[in-house]
Design a protein around this nucleic acid. Structure first.
Lengths: 212, 212
DNA sequence: CTCCGGTTCTGACACTCCGTCAGATGGGTG
DNA sequence: CACCCATCTGACGGAGTGTCAGAACCGGAG
């Protein structure tokens, strides 16, 4: 699975790799411009300046191309995931949380179109998208669950709290709020205020330290 | 706008209303079964046992039909929204929060397919879906923002916290977690544990009372 | 330089779906 | 029963889908 292949299973060479890449880039661009429901294989082919048949040489359909884009996300997000692994206790921890939330928000802004399809198809129970969502989420979840558990160990967070659910709720906030930012800004909540607040919620919910 | 019309603007009668309804129900069913990217106008027509032309008499395309389904959500969710308006302070408040979270989760389970498209298209900046999302969200947001503000007034929550962002984060948790439930259950977190935890997070974040 | 063999690309096609119309259908009313 | 108007649909031109067989391309080998 580590070699990239054509739809017939053939391992592809340098020239083909470049074509495949141009198709992926065009798919990402159209996804951003037109939304997930409107991207046609033929649009992508036109955009790349190639024949539709070429598109089908590399991807079974548009969803398959978006899936390939989604496969690239876990790797891209890895540096941010490590930020969630450091110790967030104490006031310095709040700074770390701020940075992490800010970076994650930036990441969302850059990859929103693909992330939305990834989440949508995973929510719709498509197994392969679910697998990618797991790969994508797992490091965040593991890191955040560990924070909650260790706060529970020292009695800072009640045992009745479920660590997984807490981590999931925080990830939910991180994943949906970038989509609301524009609305927030219209009503006077700046990006910074949003990040500050979410960072505090994360910090408090994960470490059990008071919401200062 | 209060009368339901055909695509040519004509106000429609009883028989047509029933046809329209059957089309909407079939759309909802296919949406649940196949996911948003795969529903074709022709599939819907086949499902209803009618000609495709009939579909286009009532809806411009599949998205338009889903939009009509989304329009029905704000009304359906109203009873749950009022639960967010009561006073959640004190331990009795936690009970109210539990009930609200539980009901909202049920609502999501029943309307997941349409909700997902509503959020997706609104996130993709489609203006009419945005409008519906606003109508849908506003009562939740208003109620939750008010809770945070009044907690801030009595000094329970710091002024550096943004009330809108807090409410948004909680709504985010409510909107995404139902989609993760299956995964949670596989890893040992029951629906009840999830609801309990989210209820506590909401209660604590919105009232400023400690995460007990 | 030219020819060769494998790789990559595409024209052409059959099929399905889209979206529109003019006209057929049907059920309520006098 | 006959009419009328709301409703439905057959039929069509156009666009997108997906598949081939063969054309174009490219990097050696001679």
């Amino acid at each position: 699975m580590s070699d990239t292949t054509a739809t017939d299973g053939r391992v592809i060479g340098e020239r083909a790799l470049q074509t495949r890449r141009r198709i992926l880039d065009a798919t990402a661009a159209l996804l951003r411009e037109q939304g997930a429901l409107d991207v046609k294989a033929m649009d992508v082919a036109r955009e790349v300046g190639t024949s539709p048949a070429t598109f089908y040489q590399y991807f079974a359909d548009v969803e398959d191309a978006i899936f390939a884009l989604a496969l690239e996300l876990p790797e891209k997000v890895a540096p941010i995931q490590t930020q969630f692994e450091s110790d967030w206790s104490g006031p310095a921890g709040l700074d770390l949380a701020r940075q992490a939330v800010s970076d994650y928000t930036d990441f969302w802004d850059e990859n929103a179109a693909v992330l939305r399809v990834l989440l949508l198809r995973a929510d719709e129970r498509d197994e392969r998208f679910r697998q990618v969502r797991r790969d994508y989420n797992a490091p965040f979840m593991t890191a955040m669950v560990a924070k909650v558990r260790s706060a529970q160990d020292v009695g800072r967070i009640a045992g009745a709290i479920d660590a997984e659910a807490t981590a999931g709720a925080m990830l939910a906030a991180l994943d949906r709020l970038p989509n609301y930012r524009e609305g927030f800004e219209k009503r006077g909540t700046s990006r910074e205020a949003m990040i500050e607040t979410v960072a505090r919620l994360l910090h408090s919910s994960l470490t059990g330290e008071p919401l200062s």
